[in-house]
Amino acid sequence: MEFLTSILTITIRAGTSLTVATIGEILTERSGTLNLGVEGIMLMGALSAFATVFYSHSLVLGFLVAIGIGGLLALLHAFLTTTMRANHVVSGLSITLFGTGFSSFLGQRLGPATNNFRLVGLRAERVVPLDSAWIKQIPLLSAFLNQDIITYSVYLLLPLSWFFLYKTRPGLWLRAVGEHPQTADAMGIDVTKIRYLYTVIGGMLIALGGAHLSLSYTPGWSENITGGRGWIVIALVIFSMWNPARAVWGALLFGGINAVQFRLQASGTSIPANFLNMLPYVGTIAVLVLMTWWEALSKKVGAPAALGTSYMREDK
């Protein structure tokens, strides 16, 4: 039981950044905007949060800066895809390419002179998970409770975003814009405004996920800290069929894969480390194929119908 609890604790910790970012991307895609810039935004979020905390010693400020940067990058994507009608795929890829390059550039430039202007290898204040002795005595449940504040916010965010999307009027508007912008427009919903709004909110959450990586999950900042997590997030959105309530399962699954990989590596298995490191990527492909296959069989379509298309009223 203790072993299971410890695995579950690591799983939830690893799954936190994935879940926050997945909810962000679900909100974005529900508006019809496909944002493939997740990896780049997470990288910039991780970098800006770490650099801010290193210099200001304020965790709150670190998260706020990351959220702001994420919002700005998403705003750029919203401008390109909504106003300039650029291709969603290529615009998102540019954000990722830019974020990857720029975060690595800043990571070699923003550090203190004593560390050769690098940020790598430095220590800053961290978000500490709750570590209460008496909670530890409760098996399994303690894995959920002995977590940090971001994980706790995810516990809140999950039901709230589900409720918002399916039970409120603005949630209905959001879904309408993603499904059929023409109809939404005719109903008097401002398609452009909605797309801007939720792409930016989505970008903020995605960056928050990145910030969680550098401020809590790993012991500091390193180049390419996400290691493809941004892309796994995009797979998780498909896996959860654009429903925030299901986002948690996918994130737990991938957090679990990480935990197992970690455990196996620590136990000194004969499987070469490179093959163990392939697990999350092979897992993503497998889940994606199974999920698509299942969707085709059950004739369920999860994706918003207008996903990845720019809406232009003049076009018709």
Partner: peptide, 26 residues
């Protein structure tokens, strides 16, 4: 200067490119 300067520049080319391609069609 970090060598990733070149990568940053490459990334920066795409944004004006994407914004501008609207004018080839519209």
């Amino acid at each position: 200067l970090p060598a990733s300067m070149g990568v940053v520049m490459q990334g920066l080319i795409l944004f004006p490119m994407l914004a501008g391609s609207l004018f080839t069609e519209y």
